[in-house]
């Protein structure tokens, strides 16, 4: 197997202000399926094309935002072997016991210099309601709402993103398909990192305040589905940010909107296939508008300042 170590961002726990409103949004608008609701009130959901038990965890809290994102790794051995490398790089590692989330084995967690909590895990049960395996149909039943097929990636805002790049690339063997340079010096304003063939599994923008969430993205199949998502946003009076449009960076077709607690969501289709031997695509600071919003060719203030 050529694809080793970290496989993908597999779990994300998001804080919401009102669980009823959040369930309506993630289930009926995005089209995720509820897997289970547990005694502590957390609600577990998944996209129709995901095999694992769940991918999205909603937790009702006093503040919106990101609790953590967890990456699935290829083996228990990797999970054991990576821990001392993380510690040697300088991060403190803690342990989350198996069963803290239903169907999920032991996890390890640490906080990046950007203020974001990252976790790694290997074991997770297969979902009862999983995509077909033997002579599989394209789907088991027609998805609801936008029909988001999976949790795809996230964009985090925080300080020290250069350190985050170093950590992901040197310790977890990610690579960097794309970046936006700062107007002066060697640093980056924004970086796109991946462990896979996707143009990004996680991205960062340099920002003063640590631990902020810019958006959580879900995959759609094509541009038509992005258009249908825009229809659903208007039909249901969902808070729209921008789109449908396209990114210069990653080349994805996209629409941004907000969940009822103000967490930004993206539904996304397309984008190029990344390989670790490709050059890092670079955007000069004075081209960042086109990089982020390829059709508008200008950044809006909201993209840079509206975070949870």
């Amino acid at each position: 197997m050529a694809f080793k170590g970290v496989l993908r961002p597999g779990l994300i726990q998001i804080r919401v202000l009102n669980m009823g409103e959040a369930i309506n949004h993630y289930q009926n608008i995005l089209g995720l399926n509820i897997v289970t609701t547990e005694a502590d009130g957390r609600v577990y959901l998944k996209g129709w094309d995901e095999f694992d038990h769940h991918s999205v965890v909603l937790r009702q809290a006093e503040s919106a935002g990101l609790d953590y994102v967890a990456f699935k790794v290829d083996s228990d051995d990797y999970l054991r072997e990576i821990e001392p490398r993380i510690v040697a790089w300088g991060l403190e590692v803690d342990h989350v016991p198996a069963g803290e989330q239903p169907g999920v084995g032991p996890r390890i967690g640490f906080t990046l210099p950007t203020g974001h909590r990252i976790e790694l895990y290997h074991q997770i049960d297969m979902a009862e309601d999983h995509p077909g395996i033997n002579n599989p149909d394209i789907y088991q039943r027609r998805p609801e709402g936008m029909g988001a097929s999976r949790f795809d990636h996230l964009l985090c805002y925080g300080p020290n993103i250069g350190k985050a790049r170093e950590f992901f690339c040197e310790v977890l063997d990610f690579y960097q398909p794309e970046k936006v340079d700062l107007p002066e010096g060697d640093g980056s304003l924004a970086i796109w990192l991946t462990a896979s063939n996707k143009a990004h599994d996680i991205a960062f923008v340099e920002h003063e305040e640590p631990g902020k969430l810019h958006h959580v993205a879900f995959l759609l199949q094509d541009w038509n589905e992005v258009g249908a998502a825009a229809d659903i946003i208007s039909i249901n009076d969902v808070s729209l940010d921008i789109g449908p449009t396209r990114h210069g960076i990653t080349r994805g077709q996209t629409i941004y909107f907000f969940d009822p607690s103000g967490n930004r969501n993206e539904v996304y289709a397309g984008g190029y296939t990344a390989y670790p031997d490709h050059p890092v695509r670079s955007w000069d600071f004075d081209h960042v508008g086109k990089g982020i919003f390829y059709y508008e060719r200008t950044l809006n203030d909201r993209f840079l300042t509206v975070l949870t």
Partner: peptide, 24 residues
Amino acid sequence: CRGGGCGVCRVQVTSGTFSKAKMS
């Protein structure tokens, strides 16, 4: 965000009455 999460639309009500929903 229009959802009580990001804090961008922060205002001070200097006169009058209002009702409010949950804010982050």
